[in-house]
Structures are given as C-alpha cells and as structure tokens.
Design a protein around this nucleic acid. Structure first.
Length: 606
RNA sequence: GCCCCUGUAGCUCAAUUGGACAGAGCACUGGACUUCUAAUCCAACGGUUACAGGUUCGAGUCCUGUCAGGGGCGCCA
C-alpha cells in the first residue's frame, strides 16, 4: 500500500507498548520524576518519549534524551547534543537514586535512560495475563467502526488460479486482523457474471457440450469449457455465431437467460468448494449483473448534467477528470460506456460503490485489487467525489502486487500461463501426505488427511502472506511446496510440540506459579515475543499488512523451539515445572492466535 | 513524455515507520536423536543497504538527482 492514503482510524499515537501498558502505573510515576528533574535544569515541558530498549535479556523501557538536548541546542545553548543527552540521562539516574518506582535498576547509556523491570515480576504478569484472557489475548476493544472489505472478485465460467489465490488469502487475512483489532467487518465478494467470456462459454457449451454437467471439481470443468471456447474463438469463422448469441443475450432471450442462470450456479458452487477449502466465507456477494442497469442510468444522468461527454456513435462516453478538476495528467479520462452503448467496468463500479453505502453504514470501504488497477480506482473514487457523495473519502484501494511465473511471466488464462488452484492444492496435499505417512504412521487415516491438508494449505498461505503487499511473488513449484525453514509447517510444528507437552502433563494447569529472576535465556526470549502480539495486531490492522503477523508467528515458533530444546518441562523440579507449564500454555495460545489471524490452522498433532 | 512500485548477504525476503551492533530462511561447511514428536537445534560462512548529493544528534528508512527492473496512462478487465 502507499503511505499517506486514507487510513481507517486516526493513526494511533497510542503507541504504548504492551510492556508499558502492564507497568503503566510505574511508568507515569517515573515520568513525573523525570520532568521534575528537568525543571531543575531549566528545561520546561520537554518532549518525553518512551520506547523499547533493544532487547538483550532484560525487560524495560527507555527514554532517549536526544530530543531534549536537541531542543536546548535549538534554543541557543552551546552544547554537543549526544554528550548533553548522556549528561541528562546520568543526571536523571542519580536523581532517581538508580532504582525505585518498581524498577529493579536504572541505567544511563548512550544518551538513553533505561528503566528495567524486575524479571520475575514481569514474566509472571505476562503469562498470567495471557492465560487469563486466553484466545482473546491481543484482541482489541470494539471500535464501533464498520469496514467492508471487497476481495476475491472472480469471473464466473472461468478458472481459479494462483493469481486469484493471493487476493483471497490477503483479503481473508486482512478481515481476520481487522476483526481481531476491534473493527466490525463485512466481507464482500463481487462476481463477474456477465460479459463476452460468459457468452463465449455458453456458445461452446451449446455447440459441443449440450446436456453435460460438471463433475466433482466444478471450477476445473467450467474452465475446461472456457479454455476450449477461447481457443475456438480464435478462428474467425466462429465469430458470427458468438456475436449472434451475444445478441440473444442482450435481448434477454429466455432460453439464453435460463442457460446463463444454470451455468452461473455451477460456477458459484465451484467457488464455494474453493472458499470452503480456504476457510473463507462472505457476508454479501454482489454481481456485475445486478449493477449494470443502474450504472447505465447513472451515466445517462452524468451526460445530462454535463459531467460526461457523449461521443456516440463515433466515440465512447467518458468523463475527462482533469478537465473537470483543473488538474493535468493526473486523473486522465475515464471511459464510462463503449461507443456502442455497452457497459464497461466503470459503468458497474460506480453504482456498486453507491449500493454498498446504501446497504451499510460504512466507516471504510476497502477494495482488495491488484496494483495494476491503481489509476482506474483512483478515477472511480474521484468520480464519486465529483458526483458529490460525501463518503467518497472512505474508499480505499488496498493494492497488492501480482503472482508471476519465473521469467516475470504474468499468469493469464488466455496464454495458458496459469497454475490452477486445484492442481496446486492437490500437489501440495500429496507431498504433505507423504511426509505425514513417514513421520506419523500410527495415526488414523482420517487424521492424516486433515493434517496433510492443514500443512499444505498453511504452507501456501504463509508463502503469500510473508511477503509485503508491494512485492511481486514469483511462483515457483519448489519454493511453494518447500515445507522447511521459514514456512507454516515450522510454526505449526511448534504448536504441536507445545500441545504434546500439555497433553502429557496429564493434569490441569497450575493455577499460578511464581517465576524466578534467573530465567534461562530461552525462557526470557520466548516471553519477550509473547508480549508483542497486541502491538503487532494494531500495527497490522492500521497498515493492512499480514506480513507483520507472519513474521511474529515465525519468531514465536523459533523461540519456542529453542525453549523446547534447552528447557525441559515435564521432568523439571516441581516449582520449575509449574511455571514452565504455564509458559508453554501461554506460548501455545499465542502461536495459535497468530496463525489464526493468517487463516492458517494450528493442528494438535503432525 | 507523464505517473506509481521495486532495488538490502550467492538466492528468496525482514528490519518495531528516523534510533543503540542491518536480521531470518534457502544453499554451502561442520556438529547434536537412549530425553516433552529431529517437520528440531547448535556452530561457521556471507553486507560500501543500486549510485551521488542533502536534511538530522542520528538515515536501509525523509528530500533531490542518476541508473536498473516491473506496472499504468480514451471505448481490456
């Protein structure tokens, strides 16, 4: 996404880290003392900013004194800023007698004032908080803001390939993250159920496949007929027949409409199979066919009002946005109707946007669409603003880059350069199955199937989500099917290990357990990562970036694996066993939550 | 011609939004299974953050310019 565009909420300056939240009381007490000291140095109303200390085994918060010293320098004092910052930090440290206010010790280093928490106290507060809140750990409060996210947008009668997959996975994860962050989310889909591609499909069906019905895999079957139609259509001798059928469709010939309804339904059922597999559901499905007529009416109105230029039949109907707005080469020209009066994307996107706001009271309307349509959507949004819709500034294009094939080849059904969704899933699942058979031969066949599916889909989703929205994904079979390293199965496996320990413990979790001050490094590192979830959820929601959650989930898994190897739980001393069991339970919870936000299953066995 | 995106280790990517020493995975090399599941872990190797200026106490991050790659720009979707 590009920065500086519309953001859902006000960008939060409540960048209070979780750690600071848990030590809020201590923090505000010490902040008052720091201000008190700075007053004695004749510094009034300084800019005090709390940030994290780069973590090195001990928790705390830091106050950089550079802004304060720089302020002094600007007001004319002859000082060297870094030196003065360090001097101030030391001054404060002495003023606070090096500790107190709930902090175990206070340091002045490199111009920063570092305030450290008691390790045992901090560790226990973190783990207790997670276990008390359970799956709600990290969940934001209800923000009473409604957001619609439109994503997926496949064309009926066509294929579903890996390019479409990135959209669904990204959109789905964004919805989960926004929901968890406290927004009320409406998942919308918008299907291309009319147009030349549909007519071509019906023509081929009538000519070569009458009476046939889809097999088990409906989307694949639909696409086979479409691909064949597209090929046959290359032959000019077939053009007349297709055009004739298009005419009958435009005249709403009942026979053609009936066929359209029946075949469209097959496509819908096929998409439903895919969405089920991916774990996606939609609250509202829009169709191009339901907004086309109102779109034409709207364009006619724009012509009457003089907003749109009508050059028919020699030329199209368009709005010259730069002319209307007095800009130059910025918004260009948006074509609204073809010269023959037929509709285009814009004809339908304008009324669709209006319809959304008629149906729902939206605080934000998000379009998850690839980056190539940036100018187009900018034009659509601007046109709605020009038309006077007060909600036009609530429209947001969440752009993402394409999934290309090696050699920077764009996936296109027409060129035959596609990797179909079901082929990919079948291959991934089969590879996962081979590994499950080898690693876990004793579990039931049913369990093996569900594990393979969770692993295969998890791996595909993680690959898409662990890359920034603005980066092109180059699809490569080996990379997509690599279950090693920084990939979903690694994270899922950590969850399985945690689950395994808890299962073998065979008792209810100790209600409370004190943590010692001399924790192992692996324990400290793990606890540190557990505290990051709430902040990352807020950040991911503000920036529409699942990537941050993908990164955290991997870091968590890595830290847990390290803990698993260095810290034994079940055969440890009773006190140690007690707090470690609670730590394992907390880690399992946070890993599961982060995977869930990515739409990835957290299996209990692998 | 104009606009947008990208450029970080051999490869694929991160970097808490201007903060402390730029981190992971893959690949290569060498180690660790009689232990809570080795789909794991440890160690080693790997950097002039495309280039040149500028702003700043501080720049991979911000501003200007250059280079390279990708995308978009009146009747495709």
């Amino acid at each position: 996404m590009s920065a500086g565009d519309v953001i859902i909420a006000e960008p939060s300056n409540k960048k209070l880290e979780f750690r600071a939240l848990m030590f809020e009381k201590e923090k505000s007490q010490v902040e008052a003392k720091i201000r008190e000291y700075l007053t004695t140095e004749s510094i009034e109303d300084p800019v005090l900013e709390f940030r994290q200390i780069p973590f090195s085994g001990e928790w705390g918060i830091a106050v950089p004194l550079f802004p304060v010293a720089a302020g002094e320098a600007r007001s004319g004092k002859k000082i060297i800023v870094p030196k003065r910052a360090q001097e101030l930090a030391e001054g404060i440290k002495n003023y606070l007698h090096g500790s107190g206010f709930g902090f175990s010790h206070i340091d002045a280093v490199n111009g920063y004032l570092n305030l450290y928490f008691s390790t045992s106290e901090y560790a226990q507060r973190v783990v207790d908080t997670i276990l008390e809140t359970g799956e709600d750990y990290g969940r934001g409060e209800d923000l009473a803001k409604t957001v619609m996210v439109e994503y997926s947008q496949p064309n009926t009668h066509k294929s579903f390939h890996v390019g479409h997959l990135r959209n669904v996975i990204l959109g789905g994860s964004i919805c989960r993250i926004l929901e968890f962050a406290g927004y009320r989310v409406i998942r919308a889909n918008y299907l291309g159920d009319i147009g030349l591609h549909v007519v071509k499909w019906m023509w081929n069906y009538l000519k070569n496949h009458v009476g046939e019905v889809p097999g088990e895999n409906k989307t694949h079957w639909m696409n086979d007929i479409y691909a064949e139609a597209d090929r046959l259509f290359q032959d000019p001798s077939n053009e007349a027949e297709v055009r004739e059928l298009y005419g009958r469709w435009n005249a709403r010939d009942p026979e053609v409409v009936a066929l359209w309804q029946k075949t469209r339904q097959w496509s819908l059922e096929g998409f439903e199979q895919i969405y089920d597999l991916l774990g996606e559901t939609f609250d509202r499905i829009y169709f191009e066919s339901e907004v086309e007529d109102s779109g034409v009416v709207l364009v006619e109105k724009m012509i009457e009002e003089g907003l749109a230029v009508d050059e028919r039949p020699e030329g199209p109907v368009f709005i010259d946005l730069d002319a209307v707005l007095g800009t130059e080469d910025e918004y260009r020209v948006l074509v609204l109707l073809r010269s023959d009066g037929s509709s285009l994307y814009a004809t339908k996107d304008l009324p669709l946007a209006i319809k959304k706001f008629e149906e729902y009271d939206l605080d934000q309307s998000i379009y998850v669409i690839d980056v190539r349509q940036s100018l187009y959507l900018k034009q659509v949004f601007k046109t709605l603003e020009v038309l006077g819709y007060p909600w036009a500034d609530k429209l947001y294009h969440l752009a993402y880059e394409l999934v290309n094939l090696p050699g920077n080849v764009t996936m296109a059904s027409r060129e035959g350069t596609v990797v179909l969704f079901d082929d990919l899933v079948a291959e991934a699942t089969s590879r996962a199955r081979t590994i499950v058979d080898e690693k876990n031969p004793e579990v039931s066949d049913e369990a093996k199937t569900s594990i393979s599916e969770a692993v295969a889909l998890g791996a595909l989703k993680y690959t898409m989500l662990s890359r920034d929205n603005s980066k092109v994904v180059t699809f490569d079979w080996d990379a997509a099917l690599d279950f090693n390293g920084q990939a979903a199965p690694y994270i899922q496996y950590a969850h399985v290990r945690a689950n395994s320990i808890l299962r073998r413990a065979g008792e209810t979790l100790p209600k409370a357990a004190p943590f010692p001050d001399n924790l192992e490094k692996a324990e400290v590192d793990l606890i540190e990562l557990l505290t990051r979830l709430p902040g990352e959820v807020v950040r991911a929601a503000e920036q529409f970036r699942p990537l941050t959650i993908a990164g955290l989930s991997y870091d968590l898994a890595k830290a847990f694996n390290d803990f698993y190897n260095t810290c034994h739980v079940l055969n440890a001393e009773p006190e140690v066993r007690a707090y470690r069991l609670r730590l394992v339970a907390a880690a399992q919870q946070v890993i599961a939550t982060s995977l869930n936000l990515l739409g990835i299953e957290a299996p209990s066995a692998m």
